[in-house]
Simulated scan of single mutants.
Amino acid sequence: MDKLSALTMFVATAEYGSFSRAAEQLGKTPSALTKAVGHLENELGVRLFERTTRRMALTEAGHIYLEGARQALMQLQLASEEVDQLQHELRGTLRLTAPPSFGPAFLNEVCCRFMDAHPQVRLEVDLNDAFVDLIDGGYDLALRDGPTDLPGLIARPLTANRIYLCSSPGYLQRKGVPVTLETYLQHDWLIFQHPLLHRHFWWLRRDGERIRLPQPVPRMASDNYDFLLACLLAGHGLQVMPQWSAAPYLASGQLVRVLTDYELEPDAFGPWVHVLYLAHRRRTRKVRVFIEMLEGYMREKGIA
């Protein structure tokens, strides 16, 4: 029996939990799947499933073999895609995940450019703040600020996570109070709430000195960054924000920096935004091309 077909049928049986359901998905007969699994068991000399009249479950050997079979099928699929795309334009599906705030800041534009350049590629973009598992989620890559020491992942720095304190010119004019370490508590603050962020104080640096600054009571707090950004642009206070988000509004004059003599530490988000991808996908051409386009856009906009 063809080994590739047998592996495909074994993996499907394990995932669907029965020969009949797996056969329906593959367009095969249950007896064909039973024969394929039996062939693998005879070849290995072990049982891959424990079967009863009511249920079937993977044996310990079955769990081990399933992981290897999945990896083998994935590698063959990747190799086929790479060979095909050496001769043809990029095609297939590219799945990525990122925090919602990355969308309007830069990811929207990069994805639109990528689709224009590669019309045969289908993008699936999942915007959420959760640190999802790339394998379980079926993602090709992720954009994240925060912890990157995850097993099996390559973390490629994309842009520095420089943190600014910003306001609209209209708010400062209306408030009439300069922003200093002595007066900052007199101002209205828009505070982003996130599990990784410290809720009680900030750390600032100037000339080698590290200063602990109590976090002000917010005029408005939210777990949605873009909601707060809209209020900031409308002139409702001050906000802590990363440079990659602030850059276009600073360039247009919609926002200005305050406390520019101080450097605000990035807290648990860390000093870099990273592109994360699985080690075995480092050579996938569509992943590589997307990352190159992303990096090029960041350099073009001065936020690399």
Rank of each mutant, 00 (worst) to 15 (best):
residue 215 Q to V: 06
residue 10 F to N: 04
residue 63 H to T: 12
residue 258 V to D: 01
residue 136 D to S: 15
residue 302 G to N: 06
residue 29 T to N: 10
residue 125 V to K: 07
residue 285 R to K: 15
residue 52 T to V: 05
residue 90 L to R: 01
residue 132 V to Y: 05
residue 192 F to N: 04
residue 99 P to W: 04
residue 299 R to L: 11
residue 258 V to M: 02
residue 200 H to D: 15
residue 133 D to C: 10
residue 86 L to H: 13
residue 159 T to K: 03
residue 141 L to G: 00
residue 193 Q to V: 15
residue 153 L to Q: 08
residue 183 T to D: 04
residue 113 R to D: 02
residue 91 R to I: 06
residue 77 Q to I: 08
residue 102 F to V: 05
residue 33 L to C: 04
residue 261 D to L: 03
residue 207 D to Y: 08
residue 91 R to V: 07
residue 88 H to V: 03
residue 174 R to T: 10
residue 296 G to W: 06
residue 63 H to K: 15
residue 185 L to V: 12
residue 31 S to T: 15
residue 60 E to S: 15
residue 214 P to A: 09
residue 227 F to P: 02
residue 245 S to R: 07
residue 105 A to F: 04
residue 120 Q to Y: 12
residue 100 P to C: 06
residue 293 M to W: 06
residue 135 I to Q: 15
residue 110 V to L: 02
residue 260 T to Y: 05
residue 299 R to H: 12
residue 233 L to V: 09
residue 234 A to Q: 13
residue 149 D to Q: 14
residue 125 V to A: 07
residue 208 G to K: 07
residue 102 F to E: 03
residue 129 D to G: 09
residue 117 A to P: 04
residue 258 V to W: 01
residue 201 F to R: 12
residue 183 T to M: 08
residue 34 T to V: 15
residue 280 H to L: 10
residue 202 W to Q: 08
residue 252 S to W: 04
residue 31 S to E: 12
residue 252 S to L: 05
residue 292 E to V: 07
residue 57 A to Y: 13
residue 103 G to K: 07
residue 66 L to G: 01
residue 121 V to G: 01
residue 211 I to Q: 03
residue 158 L to A: 04
residue 304 A to V: 05
residue 275 V to G: 03
residue 10 F to C: 02
residue 198 H to V: 13
